[in-house]
Design a protein around this nucleic acid. Sequence first.
RNA 1: GGAGAGGUGGCAGAGUGGUCGAAUGCGGUGGUCUUGAAAACCAUUGACCUUCACGGGUCCGGGGGUUCGAAUCCCUCCCUCUCCGCCA
Length: 425
Amino acid sequence: MLEIQRLRTDTEAVIKGLEGRHFANAREIVNQLLELDEKRRALLTEMEQNKHAMNQASKSIGALMKTGKREEAEAAKAESASLKALIKEQEQQVQDVETARFDLLVTLPNINHPSVPVGKSENDNATVSTNDIKVAFDFDALPHWELATKHNIISWELGVKLTGAGFPVYIGKGARLQRALITWFLNKAQEAGFEEVMPPLVVNEDSGFGTGQLPDKEGQMYHVTEDNIYLIPTAEVPITNLYRNVILKEEDLPIKHCGYTPCFRREAGSYGKDVKGLNRLHQFDKVEIVQISHPDKSYETLEVMINYVMGLLDELGLPYRQLLLCTGDTGFTSAKTYDMEVYSAAQGRWLEVSSVSNFETFQANRLKLRYRGEDNKTQVAHTLNGSALALPRIMAALLENNQQADGSIVIPEVLRPYTGFDKIG
RNA sequence: GGAGAGGUGGCAGAGUGGUCGAAUGCGGUGGUCUUGAAAACCAUUGACCUUCACGGGUCCGGGGGUUCGAAUCCCUCCCUCUCCGCCA
């Protein structure tokens, strides 16, 4: 959520930022918000003056009664009572305006950082860097969904039987590879200073609002209606919400956490290659890294985080490219996002395996996540997070890129201590 | 699922209708003392909104009500704890 303050003082920049995101009617909506804001403050001032008068009158009654000045007390009572009705009316007005302002304000996406390229869609994203790993086959390479079936390490049918499409069952070496990746990712994150957290996998509405999933993307989450809780779409939600309504000390920053969780996403998928095999699932595993940063440091931190993710991919030996998402492709809550994509030679396409974002104060405003600065004043912190990493597409790329002419799949060196085997098949 | 208790400032915990944003203790911060530390003592110490400022307003789990006036009374919702039941 953007600060209303920012709309007031930085109006043109906000409008420009929203337009860069192709947010419809940016100018009208911002103006509407400013009008509501002005109206709110005018009403508030007026109401508070009345409240002050009423409070004075009420306070005097007690004293007057004690000293036996009954008549004056009665007069004060009458004054207070007459103000009461007026105040009640004004309270309702303030409430209405506030609600309208809030409802409109939460529909605004974050404003992009100036370094984000202007663009419309994913075609306008900028490639920032790549590594020089190349994968080529001199035989007919199989896509991972065929490899998985061939080696009986993932069953799509059993997942359908148990639950439905998008819920695969990992079996034998498939399950162990999965577990190895999780452990390795967590160990690496810990080495990099991220403290591990094991949060609940379902969260309440407040948490969903805090990180920006609610009220907007309600349909993306599985909702347990009987208890009104939501299955988490990412560990970002519970981990970041640990700090909802928290005032940190400045010296506590940065806060660094990592966590492994399954992630649940309803997203009604499209058909074909995009969602085949592990490419898009309703349940998948992910290790997430989260930071709460001092505003002055958050962009520095973003670079450190994306570099950390690239280091993981280098160690796994996967070819990647680092993308800087353009204004049109950046997520609703983010000010700047890097995506990491891994090249899957057998599918001949890039697979997104990580997304690292700086939300600046967008989430922190909703979370009321602040720190106390030098002057002892509370200030809103910055939040960041990134996948490090999402498992399924890493799995897909490993299976596909590491397949050999004899049909076996070689496990990367770094994972072998965790898998206990060096190849599949 | 059944029965009961309770939700007050960073924490503990008073406060049952009027000067209570709230005693007291602990913790935090600053100071005195000390070579230093501890102890002791003194002072200070909530958040938010609004205002150029002075100031004003709101907040005792959330919402609503009674009253001139509510932390205090009533209604309602939420949450936590204890016991029983069930159970990895």
